[in-house]
Design a protein around this nucleic acid. Sequence first.
DNA 1: TGTACATCAGTGAACGCGCGTTCACTGATGTAC
DNA 2: TGTACATCAGTGAACGCGCGTTCACTGATGTAC
Lengths: 243, 243
Amino acid sequence: MTSVESTRVKPPTPRERARTQTIADIVRLGREHLALHGAAALSLRAVARDLGVVSSAVYRYVENRDELLTLLLIDGYNELGDEVDAAVDSVPESDFAGQFRALATAVRAWAIREPASYALLFGSPVPGYQAPGERTTVPGTRVIVRLVHIFDAAFRAGALDAEVSPGVVIPEGLAADLAAIRTEMNLAAPDASLARGVLVWTSLFGAVSFEVFGQYGPDTFKAREELFGHQLSVLQGVVGLQG
Amino acid sequence: MTSVESTRVKPPTPRERARTQTIADIVRLGREHLALHGAAALSLRAVARDLGVVSSAVYRYVENRDELLTLLLIDGYNELGDEVDAAVDSVPESDFAGQFRALATAVRAWAIREPASYALLFGSPVPGYQAPGERTTVPGTRVIVRLVHIFDAAFRAGALDAEVSPGVVIPEGLAADLAAIRTEMNLAAPDASLARGVLVWTSLFGAVSFEVFGQYGPDTFKAREELFGHQLSVLQGVVGLQG
DNA sequence: TGTACATCAGTGAACGCGCGTTCACTGATGTAC
DNA sequence: TGTACATCAGTGAACGCGCGTTCACTGATGTAC
């Protein structure tokens, strides 16, 4: 296919650059609209208005409303993923507990800064919209993949206490699920650690969601950063991460 | 006030009974609509259609769209609260771990059965809608109040290990928040136990939300009841609940 | 028990609004010779 | 370098739709005497 080669070799034409820029503008304006009115009220007409263009013009760039939602989903996952990666990368490789806390803190900071995008990614599903797995799975799993790799690296380095509470047994079906995950992600940690890792994952997002979605109420917790920090300490203990 | 006394003494007139029934029908139809199209798309016109009545007629019963949302919110909180209460009450008073598991299992069962109501109560906030605290706070706190009382009763009975991990300290601001909660709810448990109780609370709803909102993906976990049961066992350990 | 009046539920028309999406079109930008 | 044609961005009108809310009204139900 000559056309594929040529698009790689040739620099983008002005028209192509304009097109890329316009799509980026549409995503940006979509996010603003999301922040103000929520995903269910996201409208192509409103984005067109903000873009200074007639409503039918956005159909040159986006197939329909659902595709705009998909673009926003991917954009959100990648922004979160980038910030999480940067935060984790700034901690020494051997400091697994520090990496875990950096990841969690980055998730919380992004969620508080971008509550509408966070709600789109981790809140109630948008009625009538189904994300296309082939486009969203990879960006959508960046945080959990990174988290699992921190735990697994800690285990391989002997920094993960796999015998936190030997009394709890892993039932058969769960063990099968965990075995499949271990194979697919090429992990070394035992069932007990993986299962606890899953709980830490859900607990982290549970804590962030409660805070972002206002479940704590307006007055009950004033020291929210301290609360979150304490929760991280306890979760560290849950998964047996020393530090 | 004679009118107040008379409304208490006299049996309701047919008209009053019809009115009560119609409001109940509106709430029921509102919930169906919620389940099908989500909170943001909840419309008085659709409810009126289902009720077999002209759209303006519902204004005899409900002030506006926001009030219908409030009714649905209260209805959901109370249904969940009733089921949680029934589940906990069916466990012996001395079996604190069993009570905790009964509460958590009831929350999960209700959430899976009523995902749209669960999303309204615990998912992303509805844009443009602010719940009236004076009407929703009491029903909205039934589950956490019940959970805290299980933990506190366990502590008073000596069944709560308050020294689960002595290494973790409670920072000053968080301690102040916890002290206020202890006073207001008349609790006996120490800071460490209360703080861990908060984490257990957020973790419980985090796990349920991930499952109900589809964050686990379609295939990763097939043994979801086992996963949840295991998570409860670990959370029991987190708060130091023997059993 | 019968009548006069008040209360209430429900009607139907109307207001102004925003939405997603299609379509034929104009005019500017890019490409092939 | 210049011209002819193809591609593309954006326009403007239109389609059919549903929404929240108001208002004057009709007719049935309830109440006071």
